[in-house]
Design a protein around this nucleic acid. Structure first.
Length: 221
DNA sequence: CCCTCGACGGGAGTTACTTCA
DNA sequence: ATTGAAGTAACTCCCGTCGAG
């Protein structure tokens, strides 16, 4: 657990509907200058007790921006754990001077958005992988054509792995799509475009790839 | 106009507790 | 008195969406 470095007053900027920020003239308080810890009319240092109403009883406060420090701590906490138990939530909320509900919402949003990001990355990965497989397939088909045209001697196929000639016995023909492949072919051999991906991302992708492969009668494809 | 992100409503799942046959 | 099913409340999570900045 990180320790908040002696925070005396967190800088929360808020917007209060109905509170004019500019009114055209100078001298007004900018929205960005509002500090949630400086609640007018004798507010305490806590910002977590004012429920859903602005201090003057107006419409409920709509949105606040978290400070950099709050965001940093939340991110740090999220890195350690993507979910919080009630105690952790309470402690974090207290540390950040937020309502537990705000911490909860932040984690929910964070989970949702990192999942979205992850999905986008996987989509991109699969697109690129599909492209590389298409290209590989095209090359192999061309090679088959050439071998068929020659009709002489055992075929020589260069391994994608180490550029060594593969023995003909390692070649198989997929009965379904009639494409030639090698029995030693693996996902890694296909040269997935993002070799530097994180472990978790790879596992997720591997699962998906395994699923896709399992639906094909020929595991070699 | 588009994007980010804090907030909300609603639905689903889980758990603890109560009621009743 | 005990037990199991049904009902309910509280809580959490996810999803979709809104809207301020």
């Amino acid at each position: 657990m990180a320790v908040l470095p002696n925070t005396t007053c967190l800088e929360l900027t808020i917007s209060i509907p109905g509170l004019s920020s500019s009114s055209g003239e100078g001298g007004g308080v900018s929205m960005k200058d509002l500090d949630i810890n400086q609640i007018p009319s004798g507010g305490e240092e806590e910002c977590m007790e004012d429920e859903d109403e602005s201090p003057n009883g107006g419409p409920p406060r709509k949105k606040l921006r978290l400070t950099k420090e709050q965001s940093r701590l939340l991110e740090e906490s999220f890195r350690q754990n993507h979910t919080l138990n009630p105690k952790q939530k309470e402690a974090l909320a207290m540390q950040l001077k937020l309502k537990p509900r705000q911490v909860e919402v932040w984690f929910q949003n964070r989970r949702a958005r990192s999942k979205l990001k992850q999905t986008e990355m996987e989509c991109e990965y699969l697109k690129r992988w599909f492209g590389s497989l298409t290209e590989q397939n095209r090359r192999l088909q061309k090679e088959v054509e050439e071998l068929r045209a020659m009709k002489v001697g055992p075929p020589t196929v260069i391994s994608l792995h180490n550029s060594e000639p593969l023995p003909a016995s390692t070649l198989t023909m997929c009965p379904r799509c009639e494409r030639v492949t090698t029995t030693a072919t693996t996902v890694q051999d296909n040269g997935g475009p993002t070799a530097g991906n994180s472990v978790s991302a790879n596992r997720t992708l591997s699962d998906k790839v395994a699923f896709v492969r399992s639906r094909h009668p020929s595991a070699a494809c």
